[in-house]
C-alpha cells in the first residue's frame, strides 16, 4: 500500500485522547478495525498524516448493562455484538444488522464506533441504533459529552465530532417488555453486500396503543435518517393495516434517496415503503404476542 503517515499506538484511553489533543493542525484520524478507513487510505480518498490506532485499548471493548442503560464500548466489534446475549435481548435490530454485516473477517475487526464514524448512510449498524434512541459518548482530554445519535450526523460524511474527540461508547435505554425492535437489510446480494435500503423499527405499546414509534432508514438519504412524520402517524394510535400502509408511504415520501449503481431512487422509495410496512406490522405483531404471553 502506498501511503505515508505517522502511526501511534496508545495503550489506554487517556493516552489516546492526549494524542488526539496533540494534533497541532496535522491531519489526524483514528483507526479502529480498519475495514473502512484502510480502504479509503489505499484508494487515496483520505490522505492522513497521522493515525492513532485504538488496537491496544481493550477498555473500549465491552458490553455492559448498568441500571436501565446498555452501553457498548466503541471498540466492540460486530462479532462481539453477535456473541452478546445482552444485545440479542435488548437490541434485537442491532443483532439482526450484525447478522447481515460484511464477512467474518471484517466482522471480527469492524467496530460499532467505526461504523458510526465512517459516516456512510449505508452503515448497517446505524439504523438499529437510531431506532433504539442511542446516544454517542464523545471523549476528549478534558472530559466527555453525550450526543443523541439522532443529532450526531449533520450531512453526508459530516458529524458533530470535534477533531480532538473520540467516540468512546454508545448507549441506550434497555427497552421494556412492551417494546419490539426489528431490522431488515435489502441488498443486491445476500452475503457481504452494501445496503440498498436498510430499515429499523422500534415500537412501544401500552393498552393496545402504540406509545412509541421509531423508523430509521439507511441508504436513502445523505445520512441515516428517522422517518419522523411516519413515526408521528403511528404514535398514539392503535395500528391497523391501513394506518401502517399510510405511515409506510409517508416514510417513503420523507426519504431522499439517490440513483446509484445499486438501485434507483425510485426503487429505494419503494423499498422503504415495503420494508417499513413489513417491519412495523411485524413489530406490532411481536408486541401483540408479548401482550398475549404476559
Amino acid at each position: 500500500m502506498f501511503a505515508e503517515f505517522d502511526l501511534e499506538m496508545p495503550n489506554s484511553l487517556d493516552e489516546a485522547v492526549l494524542a488526539l489533543a496533540r494534533s497541532d493542525g496535522i491531519e489526524t484520524l483514528t483507526l479502529a478495525g480498519g475495514s473502512s478507513l484502510m480502504v479509503d487510505i489505499r484508494a487515496r480518498r483520505v490522505v492522513p498524516e497521522r493515525l492513532i490506532s485504538l488496537a491496544r485499548i481493550n477498555e473500549l471493548r465491552r458490553i455492559e448493562i448498568l441500571g436501565p442503560r446498555i452501553t457498548i464500548g466503541s471498540r466492540t466489534t460486530v462479532s462481539d455484538i453477535l456473541r452478546s446475549n445482552q444485545v440479542a435481548e435488548h437490541g434485537a435490530a442491532l443483532a439482526a444488522s450484525a447478522e447481515v454485516f460484511a464477512g467474518q473477517m471484517v466482522r471480527n475487526v469492524a467496530t460499532v464506533a467505526g461504523n458510526i464514524a465512517c459516516g456512510s448512510p449505508a452503515a448497517d449498524l446505524v439504523p438499529p441504533l437510531l431506532s433504539l434512541d442511542a446516544d454517542v459518548v464523545l471523549t476528549n482530554a478534558s472530559g466527555f459529552r453525550t450526543v443523541p445519535l439522532a443529532d450526531y450526523f449533520t450531512g453526508f460524511k459530516q458529524d458533530v465530532r470535534r477533531p480532538d474527540e473520540l467516540i468512546t461508547a454508545i448507549s441506550w435505554d434497555v427497552p421494556g417488555a412492551k417494546c419490539a425492535n426489528r431490522f431488515y437489510k435489502l441488498a443486491r446480494r445476500k452475503g457481504d453486500a452494501i445496503t440498498v435500503t436498510g430499515v429499523a423499527v422500534t415500537l412501544g405499546a401500552a393498552n393496545g396503543v402504540c406509545t412509541k414509534a421509531r423508523v430509521a432508514l439507511g441508504a436513502v438519504a445523505p445520512i441515516v435518517m428517522r422517518a419522523r412524520a411516519a413515526e408521528a402517524m403511528l404514535e398514539g394510535s392503535t395500528l391497523t393495516v391501513e394506518l401502517i400502509e399510510e405511515a409506510s408511504l409517508k416514510a417513503a415520501e420523507e426519504c431522499q434517496p439517490i440513483d446509484d449503481i445499486r438501485a434507483s431512487a425510485d426503487y429505494r422509495r419503494h423499498a422503504v415503503h415495503m420494508l417499513t410496512r413489513r417491519l412495523v406490522a411485524g413489530a406490532w405483531a411481536d408486541l401483540h404476542l408479548a401482550t398475549e404471553v404476559s
Partner: peptide, 22 residues
Amino acid sequence: IYKEGRLMTPSLSEYLIPTAMD
C-alpha cells in the same frame, strides 16, 4: 457497469459474484 465508457463497478464490493450465503 460502464457510464460513458468509465467503469462504475471497479471492485468486488460493486461487482457482485455470489457468496456462500447466496
